[in-house]
Each structure stands twice: as structure tokens, then as C-alpha cells.
């Protein structure tokens, strides 16, 4: 691991990366032009957006959700806007069109 000193001396030997999954500290959400919004009432929890998302930016949780028709779901899908690059694959592949792409407005 890194030893004392400054600059290149702080690097581990061989320049290896010792922390797995360190790219989580790099937020790719700033790339986004279009923002996906999941309509929780329309969503049928088929898991396809979660499977297809190349950035693992769809989060699956065990949160319960009761929709307007009174149907109870034991899974909920949310978008992690820290990493979503806004490619729109989820909206394109959603079988019930529950995901809408809206322009980012700042």
C-alpha cells in the first residue's frame, strides 16, 4: 500500500488499484441530457430496466409499494441519478412504457 512521501511515492508498487469498485466515487450522472422518470403506478416490476441498464443506475429495493389500483408490490425500482448517463435504454425497452425521458433542466 501507499507509504509516506508525496507525489508518485504515494502510489502502490506497480500502480495497482487496491480498492475494488473505486469508480463509485466518479459520478457519471453529469453526462446526462435526458432524465428517465419511472412511473411507479405503471411499472409491472418485470426487472428488465434493471437487467439492461449498462451503468447499474437502476436500483432495486425491497420497498413495498401500493399503486392507485390497490395492487401491492414488494419490489421498487428507482433511478440512481448520480450515475445514470441518460442513454434511454430503460425507456426504450420498458414493455409497459412506464419510463419517460424528460430533458434535464438546470
Amino acid at each position: 500500500m501507499a507509504s509516506g512521501g508525496s507525489g508518485w511515492r504515494t502510489l502502490p508498487p506497480g500502480g495497482i488499484i487496491v480498492e475494488p469498485g473505486s469508480s463509485l466515487r466518479y459520478k457519471t450522472g453529469t453526462w446526462r441530457v435526458m432524465r428517465p422518470i419511472i412511473n411507479q403506478d405503471k411499472c409491472v416490476r418485470c426487472r428488465m430496466c434493471w437487467v439492461y441498464c449498462p451503468d447499474a443506475a437502476i436500483i432495486e429495493t425491497d420497498e413495498e409499494y401500493v399503486d392507485s389500483k390497490g395492487r401491492r408490490w414488494n419490489r421498487t425500482y428507482k433511478v440512481n441519478y448520480d450515475y445514470c448517463k441518460g442513454c434511454g435504454i430503460c425507456a426504450e425497452e420498458c414493455p409497459v412504457n412506464a419510463i419517460e425521458m424528460v430533458p434535464e433542466v438546470k
Binding site: G21, S23, L24, R25, Y26, K27, T28, W31, R32, C46, R47, M48, V51, Y52, C53, P54, D55, A56, A57, E60, N80, D82, Y83, K85, G86, C87, G88, I89
Partner: peptide
């Protein structure tokens, strides 16, 4: 079935593949 896929991510977010590149998937 599709629900048998483990939830744990082993190829995590924050990579710089182009938006929409299915290599990530």
C-alpha cells in the same frame, strides 16, 4: 427465471463507457 439473477453488483457504476454501451450490461 429473471428473478434468479443476484442483486449484488460486481461491475459497478462510474465506469466511462459511452452512454448506452451494452458492454456494461
Amino acid at each position: 427465471g429473471i428473478l434468479d439473477i443476484p442483486r449484488e453488483e460486481r461491475f459497478v457504476s462510474g465506469h466511462r463507457l459511452c452512454a448506452g454501451c451494452p458492454v456494461g450490461t
